[in-house]
Structures are given as C-alpha cells and as structure tokens.
Design a protein around this nucleic acid. Structure first.
Length: 456
RNA sequence: GGCGCGUUCGUCUAUCGGUUAGGACACGGCCCUCUCAAGGCUGAAAGACGGGUUCGAUUCCCGUACGCGCUACCA
C-alpha cells in the first residue's frame, strides 16, 4: 500500500465557483483534522483553471468560509489574488499560475511516449491492467473498465485549446506539493484509477486515498448549489456559531471512538482517525445542527457571547454607545442561555435599548396581556416596586408574589402584563432579571405607559 | 446502458458472530416553572429482501431491490 511514514501533507483543493459548498467545507474539515491529528501540514490549493468564472471575488468567498470555520491552512494563498502573497515553498498555490509546470510534465510524458496527440488534444496512454484502489475508508476497490473505456481507455489530459484537464493538473500538483493523503469526496472514487495510473507514469508512489461519503439533502437527493443550506454563507448569515457547524459536520460520517457528540475542533482533531469514518452518505438535518448551535452557545464564555452579540446588534442598527458596557453585557447576557441564532438576537434584546415610550409591542402579546383587568394590577405592581428598599431579582419576585397572594390570584396574571409592559413581548428572559437589568426608573415608567395604553 | 460505492429507529449513529440492538436530534406523555426555553422522568421508533456459511447472524459470503456517485477535450 501507499502508507507512507513521511510527515503528513494534505490539501483542500476547491474550484472557486463563488461559494463554499457544505460538503466541500466538510472535506476541508476532515483534511484539517487529519493534519492536526498527525501534526502534519494542511495546504490550500485553488484549482482556478477556468479563468472565465474564477474571479478573485469567488476565491475570497472560499477563503472567508474556511477562516470562519477556523480551518487555518499552513501553506497556500493569503487572499484571492492568484499573483498575490502566499505561504509555503511549494507554490504557486493557484493552478492558473502553474502552466509552466504542466507544460513540463506533459513534455515528460510525451518524451516517454506515455502521451500522444489526438485531434489537437493530448491523450494519456492509460494502463490496460485493472487497477485496485486501496482506500483508507472504503477498503480495496477493484475498478474494472467501463464499456466506453473498453473502446479506448486513453483519456484526454490537454484539451484542444491547450488547457490541461483536472485529472492531470490535480495529480501533477499533488506530486509537486508532496501530498501524502488525498481526502476527498466519494464522487472522485471512479476517477482515482486514472489518477493512480498518472502517478505511476511519473514514477511516483500514489498517495493514500480516503474517500469520504457525500452529504445529501434531507430527501436523499444530491445536495447541489441551489439547494437550501448548501452554501456555508447561509450559516454565516444566520448567525450559527462556527464551532457548532464544525461539530455537526464532523458527525456526518464520523464518531469519536470514545463516544460523546459535543466537542470543539481541537478535541475532534485529537481523536480523529480516518479509519473511523463511515462509508455511507448522510442526510443533512438542520434541526440537529440547531441543537449543536444551542449547546455551543450555552458553553460560550459570557464575554465572548456579549462580544458576538454586540457586533450583531451594531450591524442591525442599534447604537450601543449610549449605554454602559456593564449594562450591555447584562442585557445581552440575559439571553445567552436561550441559545438562539445570532440573527435572532436583536428581536430578543431590543427592549433593553429602546426608549421607554418607543417600545415595540407585539400585537398578539398586547391583546392578550394588556387587557382592562390588568390595568389596576399594573398600577399596584408599580406601587410595590417603587416602594422596594432594594431593586433586585429576588426582591422583585417576592414583591410580585406577595401581591398575587394578597389578591388571591396566581403569579401568571401579574407576570404576563408586567412582561409585556417592560418588553413589548410575551416571551423573553426571566422577568425578574430583566427588570433588574432595566433598572427601577425604566420599569416604573414602562408600567405607567402600559397602564395608560390600556385606558386608551 | 457500463463501472463503482452504499443500505441499523423519521434523521445522524453504536455494535467489529451470542446484546432486552445502545445513544443523540426530532416527536408524544408526565414533572418542574414568571413567559419561551432549559432541566428531570418517561413513551413510541430500526437491522431493505432472499439465499447461503455457522451451534448461532445486524455482523461473513452470494443474489435481488433500492439509493448515490462516476461514465466530458467540467472540476
């Protein structure tokens, strides 16, 4: 087998199509995990042979997605500019900049009569022997010739227009860059025989192959560009935590031997083993991703959550500069345990930052809670709260419950009008804590305003 | 059509010949409760089908069905 003892070098080699596919992201992730697990090197190579659609912009989208997921590469481009700076000594890392290398390699095959002209294109003299692929995940695969290959197994490596094709450049680059393990989607399994033959033609031991199963839509169909949730950008926009996405992606095809489903990329890297990766395709389940987001949000260091939350609010148009840092931290922190998507955050905390007379009332909540019978209750609550020697969650709760007891009613009829008065909504953080954060004057004012609203 | 890969609850999976087939998400019920959640308890839910091999198959082999991939002078 091609099991090598030299240091691991793996690569993610996307084509800049303008978006990072969720399956591609997982391929990158598995490569990263294997590199980090083995102390090897993770490289990024841009396969931008189709100049027409491969813009710098398109490459930047991919780099941004990888960085968002936290998949840092040891060698590769610094940005989407093919002629710009890069890291590593095996560059250039853009195929568009490697034409000279390909030309040389084509000549090499020609000189040894392993390639020949055909209708202006160049074909590779494919071996007629059956090729067995030793796959680290699937096992041994005996790839027989298809009916078309029976007719002519020699495949094109340079198109009539002079551009070398994927199979060729991919292998040449893997040779030049010293790739030891090729971890890629299962959709490449059939191609692998061609690649192995090319490696042999160049007298190079093929790398170890590991083909990972595909990610399918919930209905079992192939997840393609247009499908919902196929692009990593969707998860960035919706405010998922990158660690949550990475965690979920890991689980699509891999489970740690020691068990446990919730982990960071670093923890996954220490446990990761290619041999434990599944052979069968997995369907994408958004609900489960949401669950992992929830778990990761709850485990986030509070200051970090506040930092992320503040950024989201700023982007949503809130001017936080008028508020004290401690107030902002308390306000945002009060909803961390909800584990909501970041894009939903403004809708949960806006009341903390709106003027008392500018609260936005949810019509349904208002109709339900701010009814005529609630008016005297709000007045009495205001009175009790105003008289409290201390304004804290526990004194607030005690005061509200004491009033309820005196009136012979449950807490609910008091809580809901109060909550809607303070926040404009029927759902939200713990009422007593939210009032504590809001502060006495704001709470009293909002109770008055709500009561007046009922009268009108 | 040809070639290849795959098939355990609805979904992601554990099991590496002998288990009441376990867990997670989702779903139902109960409890808790200031809303929504969370949490605790609990319920329903799976080995595609047919042959072998074996004392014994979810597990090994063969076939069928179904799914997916490839089959380009795309990547």
């Amino acid at each position: 087998m091609s099991q090598s003892s030299s240091p691991v070098r793996v690569r993610f080699a996307p084509s800049p199509t303008g978006y990072l596919h969720i399956g591609g992201a997982r391929t990158a992730l598995f490569n990263w995990l294997h590199a980090r697990h083995t102390g090897g090197t993770f490289l990024l190579r841009i396969e931008d042979t189709d100049a027409a659609r491969n813009t710098q912009e398109a490459t930047d989208v991919i780099l941004r997605g990888l960085r968002w997921l936290g998949l840092d590469w040891d060698e590769g481009p610094a940005d989407g500019n093919p002629t710009g700076p890069s890291r590593g000594d095996r560059g250039p890392y853009f195929q568009s900049q490697r034409s000279e290398i390909y030309r040389r390699r084509i000549q090499e095959l020609r000189d040894r009569d392993l390639a020949y002209d055909d209708d202006g294109a160049v074909r590779f003299r494919m071996t007629r022997e059956p090729i067995v692929i030793h796959d680290r995940i699937i096992g041994d695969i005996a790839r027989a010739l298809t009916d078309r290959e029976e007719e002519n197994p020699d495949f094109v490596i340079v198109r009539r227009d002079g551009l070398p094709v994927f199979h060729f450049v991919n292998v040449v680059d893997d040779i030049e860059m010293g790739i030891t393990h090729v971890i890629r989607g299962e959709d490449h399994v059939s191609n692998t025989a061609k690649h192995i033959a090319l490696f042999r033609a160049f007298g190079v031991q093929p790398p170890t192959y590991a083909h990972i199963p595909l990610i399918l839509n919930p209905n079992g169909s192939k997840m393609s560009k247009r499908d919902e949730g196929a692009s990593i950008q969707a998860y960035i926009d919706d405010g998922y935590l990158p660690d949550a996405v990475a965690n979920y992606l890991c689980l699509l095809g891999w489970t740690p031997k020691e068990g446990g489903e919730l982990f960071t990329k670093e923890q996954a890297a220490s446990a990761f083993d290619l041999s434990d990766v599944n052979r069968s395709n997995a369907r994408f389940d958004l609900k489960k991703l949401e669950h992992f987001h929830f778990e990761h949000v709850r485990r986030l260091a509070p200051p970090r959550f506040v930092e992320l939350g503040s950024a989201v609010l700023a982007r949503a148009g809130f001017d936080l500069s008028a508020f004290a840092p401690a107030y902002i931290a308390a306000a945002i922190g009060s909803v961390q345990e909800k584990g909501k998507l970041l894009k939903e955050l403004p809708g949960w905390v806006d009341f903390y930052f709106l003027a008392d007379d500018a609260l936005v009332f949810d019509p349904e909540a208002k109709d339900k809670a701010l009814v005529s019978t609630a008016r005297p209750l709000l007045a009495q609550l205001r009175e009790r709260f105003a008289a409290l020697p201390e304004f804290t969650p526990s004194t607030l709760e005690a005061a509200l419950k004491a009033l309820a007891a005196e009136l012979g009613i449950k807490a609910g009829p008091l809580v809901q009008p109060c909550r809607v008065a303070c926040t404009g909504r029927g759902v939200g953080p713990s009422l007593y804590h939210l009032m504590d954060i809001l502060g006495r004057s704001r709470v009293l004012r909002r109770l008055e305003i709500a009561a007046a609203l009922i009268a009108g």
